[in-house]
Design a protein around this nucleic acid. Structure first.
Lengths: 118, 118
DNA sequence: TACTTGTTCTATCTACACTAGAACAAGCAT
DNA sequence: ATGCTTGTTCTAGTGTAGATAGAACAAGTA
C-alpha cells in the first residue's frame, strides 16, 4: 500500500489521504479486513504530522470505511464498490463536454462543487 | 441579474460569484456586451466587501469572460455556450455517482482534474 | 510487563479569505 | 473644464482552518 501526498495541491493533506484510501478500497486494492499502517508510521513515511494522518483515519471511520482500535490499528471494514467504474465513466463524459465548451479544469471543478452543494 | 451568495458554504465567496457569472454567461442570461453591476454596488447588495467582488471580477477577466475598464465597469466579452446543458447533465451524473460512493466534493474534483490532464 | 496504537489535550505557526480605508487613474456626463 | 463613476493599487487588521508539535493517557497485543 503506497500513498502519494502532494503538498502543492489545493486539496488539503488529510483530504488527499482520505481520497486515496477511498479509491484503494473502491478498487479493491485494500481488502476487507486488511490493516492500514499505524498512524505514526504512515506519518513518518509520508512526511506528515501524526495528527494529520489521524484526522484522515477518523474521517474514514466516520464514513464507515475503516475501524479504529487502540493497540490494533485501522482495519478496513468496507467492501469494494461495484460501480466505481460508473463514476470514472461519468467523469470522462464531463471532461469531454467541458473541453468542447473550452471550460478550464478549474472552472469545471467549480461547477462540480456547486452542483454538489445544491 | 441577481446573484446569491451563501457564506455558510465551503466554497469561498469570490469563487461563488465567479461561478454564478460563468453560469449566467454560459446560459445566455448575461449577453455579450452587457454590463455587470459596479463592484461597489454589487458588494453593497450582496453584503460583501468591494475587494471580494473585485477579486471575482479580476478572475473573470483573467479567464477572458469580461472586460474591465475604469469609469465604465465590467462588460461581458464571452459568447454563450451552445450546449452547456450537456455539461450540466454530465456533472449531475458525476455528483450522483460520487454521492453513492460517499466521495467528498473535493475528492471528486481532484479526480476530475486528474481526468482533465490525461 | 513491555510495547503498540489510537485518543485527547493544549499550544503554536502559517496561509488564506475577508474586511476596511484610503489614495489614485481612467473614462464618462454635464 | 468640472465632477462623478469606476476600476486599480496600497497597507493593514481580523478570523478561521490546516498543519505541526509535544505530552499524557487508555485500550489492546505479545
Amino acid at each position: 500500500m503506497l500513498f502519494r501526498i502532494d503538498p502543492t495541491l489545493n486539496e488539503t493533506l488529510f483530504a488527499q489521504l482520505v481520497t486515496q484510501v477511498r479509491l484503494a478500497v473502491a478498487q479493491g486494492a485494500l481488502q476487507h479486513g486488511e490493516r492500514l499502517p499505524a498512524a505514526r508510521e504512515l506519518a513518518a513515511s509520508l512526511d506528515l504530522n501524526v495528527h494529520t494522518v489521524l484526522r484522515a483515519y477518523q474521517l474514514l471511520r466516520d464514513d464507515g470505511l475503516i475501524e479504529l482500535r487502540r493497540g490494533r490499528g485501522a482495519i478496513v471494514t468496507a467492501r469494494p464498490a461495484a460501480d466505481h467504474a460508473n463514476l470514472l465513466a461519468a467523469i470522462d463524459e464531463v471532461v469531454r463536454e467541458a473541453r468542447a465548451l473550452r471550460f478550464s479544469p478549474e472552472a469545471t471543478a467549480t461547477l462540480l462543487k456547486e452542483a454538489f452543494s445544491s
